[in-house]
Design a protein around this nucleic acid. Structure first.
Lengths: 337, 337
DNA sequence: ATGAAAGCGCTAACAG
DNA sequence: CTGTTAGCGCTTTCAT
């Protein structure tokens, strides 16, 4: 809280500049001086004032990340991936979230600008509604990257999972197990991943000449529960591909509560491979998103963009995995594609 | 990224000071001038440089929070509680975590000091091992508060859940359902909550003249699974009170895998009420921690300490709740205390 | 109610 | 290799 560069400089009879250089590991200091400085600094518990440093250097070695909420471990695992790569390059990560509120999100974006972060990484809770703000940031010269979800047209570089491919894979799996009345509980279609997953499902059904049965359900357990109820009321189905694991868990609950057996009466496949997917009443077969890898890729892309050696329209798409558990009935139907 | 106080001042023919005051809502500006300034600032998308502000003001309106990891929604819900109260007072929250590494944790503490945060809130991954560092911070004049867990002797103010009471309540519940061979799967006893829960369990058993059966298991599913296996191997038990929900889920799995029915053959009660406790194979009866309230209390205490009007040895303990589901067998034994 | 001066602690850009 | 000179953009203090 106290000791400054100047104090160290005086104590050691060198200039503040020398101390600064030594402590940052910059070149232009003799090994001996550097060692003396570092030792003394450690001894007196010196901590650079990061505010002063950011001000003088006109930039902070910081990546600002904005996620929609703190409720979903998916976001946090991505952030951990970002941190790993960031730290290797001497960057810190400021984590903000909007509590799913577009207004808060805008505020957080500007706050990060106020902190002069090197780049803003955002998974927006309203990709289209806040597109203008993102454009404003870009106009101010801020590096912005999106992840997981994007607006109708991509205005900044980004990193995403292969939602179409993952959905196609899940659907294919169900088809290959012999199911024919395969429905889809779609997520909120205002988000690109929900649209992409719907699309992957549709493509695959079309490929096999099967009829799509789509029920829009939105996000979360509650909506999954309600959506599944609605679906069961209006259609007879063999199997359901659910757009997100939390909804899938709600859907599972709804099926069981209606006296249906899972997977015997209705099979279920989710998307996301969230933590408790393996532990729910009927362990969930699901598409696995490479969370940590997505974070790595995002940080790497951000760093390259900051350094100016990446095309500012780069989009990275990472392939998904697939985890077969009980809810799809593969263990009963003896096929694991 | 560009416009500064001075530019606004020039454009409006006032001094930078006036602009500063107007924008911060400080006194000493006529309502009219203030309005003009604010409008213009909004028009040009002015964002104060927070680094400059922190430097000049010698302090940032920021609370630094350090949690052990990003894997447990418990921490994040607490942080959300902290944020709510902090925002009301114009404070931001910097969130850091140590990935359960004491060395990283020390580093993060000093980094927060370097950012001149108004206070450091920490749930340490090594409360005793890092006690010296915490003491160093205090010596440097930094306000430090602990939460959830503390070292052997409390050196700073803190906010905790009533672990003893919660454990006693859980144990009492099992006793009242008629179980007599009640075991405890303890957590890592290097953490105060694990010690407190063990103690609550022991007290309650003693009260009823029952013999304690304690198995140390540590944290996490894997350890819960292993611990339960070990316990089942060495003792015949009616019921098990598990120190943490994740371990309880592992324990549940272990019991089911050994062919035991839950709760018919062995009842289970957890601690924490984590998100998926309601959705696991056998919905988990568990002690509920008031996560958000803990966060609120923590932020409020921090703010009072910063303002200098709280005894720096204050400890806040919040009562826990209790959620009865299937794993305890209350629905079979027809008693809900 | 407003402004001028001074400096927060650090680093960039030049000197030497 | 080392030091000097200027600020970075804001707030504090003290005038007016």
């Amino acid at each position: 809280m106290k000791v400054t560069l100047d104090e160290i400089a005086q104590a050691l009879n060198v200039s503040a500049m020398t101390v600064s250089r030594a402590l940052r590991g910059a070149s232009g200091v003799s090994a001996e001086t550097s060692a003396r400085v570092r030792e003394y600094a450690r001894k007196v518990n010196y901590r650079p004032n990061l505010a002063a440093r950011a001000l003088a250097a006109k930039r902070a070695s910081v990546l600002g990340a904005i996620i929609p909420n703190l409720r979903h471990s998916f976001w946090l695992e991505m952030v951990m991936g970002v941190e790993q790569v960031a730290h290797e390059s001497g960057y810190h990560v400021f984590l903000s979230h909007s509590a799913d509120d577009p207004v808060v999100e805008r505020e957080e974006m500007w706050t990060l600008v106020g902190r002069r972060v090197a780049a803003v990484l955002i998974a927006s809770c309203d990709p289209d509604g806040n597109a203008d703000t993102i454009r404003d940031l870009v106009d101010e010269g801020v590096h912005v990257l999106m992840f997981d979800r994007h607006g109708r047209d991509p205005i900044v570089p980004g990193v995403y999972a292969d939602d179409v491919g993952g959905a196609a894979r899940a659907t294919e799996h169900l088809v290959s197990l012999g199911y024919r009345r395969i429905a889809h509980l779609a997520g909120d279609l205002k988000f690109s991943p929900a649209r992409a997953r719907l699309s992957g499902y549709q493509q695959k059904l079309a490929e096999y000449g099967l009829d799509p049965i789509v029920q829009e359900a939105g996000f979360g357990e509650e909506n999954g529960y309600l959506g599944m109820q609605a679906l069961l009321r209006r259609a007879r189905v063999d199997a359901v591909f659910v757009s997100h694991d939390p909804s899938a868990i709600g859907a599972l609950q709804a099926a069981l509560n209606s006296g249906l057996r899972v997977p015997e009466d209705v099979a279920l496949v989710g998307f996301g491979n969230m933590d408790c997917a393996a532990h729910v009443a009927v362990p969930l077969t699901t598409v696995d998103q490479p969370r940590t890898d997505l974070g790595h890729a995002l940080a790497r892309l951000a760093l390259r963009i900051i350094a100016g050696d990446a095309d500012p329209s780069t989009t990275v798409v990472l392939p998904t995995g697939f985890v077969v558990r009980k809810s799809c009935g593969a263990h009963l139907r003896g096929r694991t594609p």
